[in-house]
Each structure stands twice: as structure tokens, then as C-alpha cells.
């Protein structure tokens, strides 16, 4: 079972060097436990482009698809047997990155 973990933030590029070090350490722990799938930081949503390619010509729009005060500043994809395992891990992840996190299940395909 995989979970997408969004890092909730409201200020651009607000991460500190200490947080980055704590995240590295946490990521090592994820890898050791076999929970690591992927992780990345994201640029501010203002750098986003929305593309609609369903018509004849793709239509481009500047900015994120939804304007919110809070946005995902980064994400993890983790492997965990169930939500309790995922939540226990990401409670530590939240401490490491010093942000609130959204833990969202990835659809399981049979």
C-alpha cells in the first residue's frame, strides 16, 4: 500500500538548513525500513502552469489550478502496510520537516 504525503506550507522557500538536515535523516530511516518510494520538494505554486490538452490546441493558463493560502511544498510517496504504520512514520516526518502533513492513500489497483 502506498501513501502520498503532502507537506503543507503557506510561505514560499521557507525551509531552513536544520529542517533539510532533519529531513535527510528521516529519509535515511524510511529507506532502512523499506518505506521509501520517492520524495521531492516543490517550487511555489505561482510557478505552475495549467495545461488543457483536450481540445485541438493545448490551452495554457498561468498559475496553480486552485488558489489556496496553503499548498504542497513537497511530498513523499511511502510504502506502508496500513494507515497506522503510515501515520506513525509521518508523525516523525512532520517533526523532521517542521510542517503539517496530509497523508493520502494511493489507489490500490487489483
Amino acid at each position: 500500500m502506498q501513501y502520498l504525503v503532502n507537506v503543507i506550507d503557506s510561505r514560499a522557500d521557507s525551509g531552513t538548513a536544520e529542517e533539510a538536515a532533519a529531513i535527510d535523516e528521516f529519509n535515511d530511516k524510511l529507506r532502512e525500513g523499506g518505506h521509501w518510494v520517492f520524495a521531492a520538494g516543490l517550487a511555489h505554486p505561482s510557478a505552475s502552469t495549467v495545461i488543457d490538452g483536450r481540445g485541438d490546441e493545448p490551452v495554457l493558463t498561468d498559475g496553480p489550478f486552485v488558489e489556496t493560502k496553503e499548498f504542497a511544498a513537497g511530498f513523499w510517496i511511502i510504502e506502508a502496510t496500513d494507515l497506522d504504520v503510515a501515520l506513525a512514520l509521518m508523525a516523525e516526518g512532520s517533526k523532521a520537516c517542521n510542517r503539517r502533513l496530509e497523508v493520502r492513500p494511493v489507489h490500490t489497483e487489483a
Binding site: 502496510t81 496500513d82 494507515l83 497506522d84 497523508v103 492513500p105 489507489h107
Partner: peptide, 10 residues
């Protein structure tokens, strides 16, 4: 079901 909240005693 979707988030796989486990069915067990903690």
C-alpha cells in the same frame, strides 16, 4: 477501506 485503516487491536 481506501486508506487501509487496520482492523486490529493497537
Amino acid at each position: 477501506a481506501a486508506a487501509r485503516i487496520p482492523y486490529r487491536v493497537p
